[in-house]
């Protein structure tokens, strides 16, 4: 089972992080992605394959400060 921001999502197993983020319409410039406790560097999005058991958190930043 894969969890993305707390929701179960098994259809993404085997695809790379870059493609998932594109398909889910995330703006790459505004996010940080953590998988199993590690923040994934942007240049590793394409080489990171989503695996069974992954716990993924996508932080989507909004403006203001």
């Amino acid at each position: 089972m894969v969890k993305i921001n707390g929701n179960s999502c098994d259809s993404v197993i085997g695809i790379n992080l870059h493609d998932y983020l594109m398909s889910a319409s995330f703006d790459h410039r505004r996010i940080a992605v953590e998988i199993n406790g590690i923040i994934i560097p942007k240049n590793q999005y394409e080489s990171t394959i989503i695996e069974d058991g992954d716990n993924i958190e996508i932080v989507n930043f909004v403006g203001g400060g």
Binding site: A32, V59, F61, G63, G64
Partner: peptide
């Protein structure tokens, strides 16, 4: 204050300085 700058800093600190703690902010308008 800018969302892209926030994301850039968090990503770059995690990559370049993995031992440092980062305390960020998002959503207070």
């Amino acid at each position: 204050d800018d969302a892209e700058s926030k994301a850039m800093l968090v990503n770059m600190i995690a990559e370049l300085y993995p031992d440092k703690y980062i305390v960020a902010a998002s959503g207070m308008a």
